[in-house]
Design a protein around this nucleic acid. Sequence first.
DNA 1: TTAAAAACAGGATGACCGGTCTGTTTTATG
DNA 2: CATAAAACAGACCGGTCATCCTGTTTTTAA
Lengths: 201, 201
Amino acid sequence: MAQDSVGKPKRINDPQGMRSRILDVTADLFQRRGYHSTSVQDVVQAAGATGGALHHHFPTKKALGLAVIEERVAREVNTTAIEPVLQADRLKTGVLAFFSAVAGELERNQAVTGCPLNNLAVELSLADPDFRHASNAIFQRWVGVLAQRLQDDDPALASRQAGMLATLVVAAYSGAMAMAKASQSALPLRDCAVQLEKLLP
Amino acid sequence: MAQDSVGKPKRINDPQGMRSRILDVTADLFQRRGYHSTSVQDVVQAAGATGGALHHHFPTKKALGLAVIEERVAREVNTTAIEPVLQADRLKTGVLAFFSAVAGELERNQAVTGCPLNNLAVELSLADPDFRHASNAIFQRWVGVLAQRLQDDDPALASRQAGMLATLVVAAYSGAMAMAKASQSALPLRDCAVQLEKLLP
DNA sequence: TTAAAAACAGGATGACCGGTCTGTTTTATG
DNA sequence: CATAAAACAGACCGGTCATCCTGTTTTTAA
């Protein structure tokens, strides 16, 4: 019952937690509505924060968007698209598992919100060079890792060829997600997976 | 010198021309900046029109966006992506020519603005069901035409298989254009074309 | 010829946007 | 304990946004 003698603080300063929470809810809002349709007010409300707190951690909306891309989108691409592929016995197995996993999740959910990287890259690449570079860096890393894995699987595979194959995998996924978003169906993803299976070594 | 006896009209009413001009400049603005970053003021200025004229032809921004998708984007997909494929001797030839033509144009221009259908589909599919349906209809028609052409080329090809191949072609193109937009390079497009060549019959 | 509708003109409006600003509380530092 | 910096609170502001509104001109149709 008795309070600590120092009294209850009216506020708990948790800079890391606050910043992380803001990034989380912003990434979620961006995913569902996009960058331009999400206002900083929306973020403040959804995060249960204040304008002052938001401005302290992210002085501009652009800084917030950049942080979302570099810290949240990059992380999600890493955990959902890159790591599973690296852990599989072969790239082909991993890629197909990745496509299947995403398609399964889309079918479980009621709405297809698309690929976060693709969504923001398409919306923001021309709006600002910084956004473009941040998006492109993730694409490049993604393709690079897949290409490297292809060469690890088969050392005889030419580097150029591995890069082109990896590019197709990422492009097919991004495009299929755009089509899935428009059709609200996981079918494009599954269709592409079937075809990629025939092409990948 | 002398004016016509009926006098010079202060204004020329050209409803079709005005509507068409508005759609043209709006499609261009959407392509470069996207839907939400384009204001109706921007459209009015770029079209050399007035708020009244714009509101007369398109009472809301949504109506304008819908018309752009249904009349301009659909037309562009048709002329640049569908017709060349139908006119080629085989789908494979047409698809490769299409990829190559787009890549060539990207390399000639200084900026890669992406695929108009993909741009708007990704930005607007979740914003409004009407936008989504309009985008999806174009995707569906595109895939449908390619699949039909595949079956025409080879009557032995299963319908399901043709549909999946067509989906991959469209997805690879859309995704490659997103990557091209982020990297400001036509390379993703060329890479995907090389890989598709190996897969297409 | 005349009435009505269509095609425009252009200003007004209220909501909302991102950014700023001042002030208060908490925490780190010496 | 003292002091400064960091972390947050919350109001405020100028600008922009999409839409609406009232007129005026042109065209159609009767």
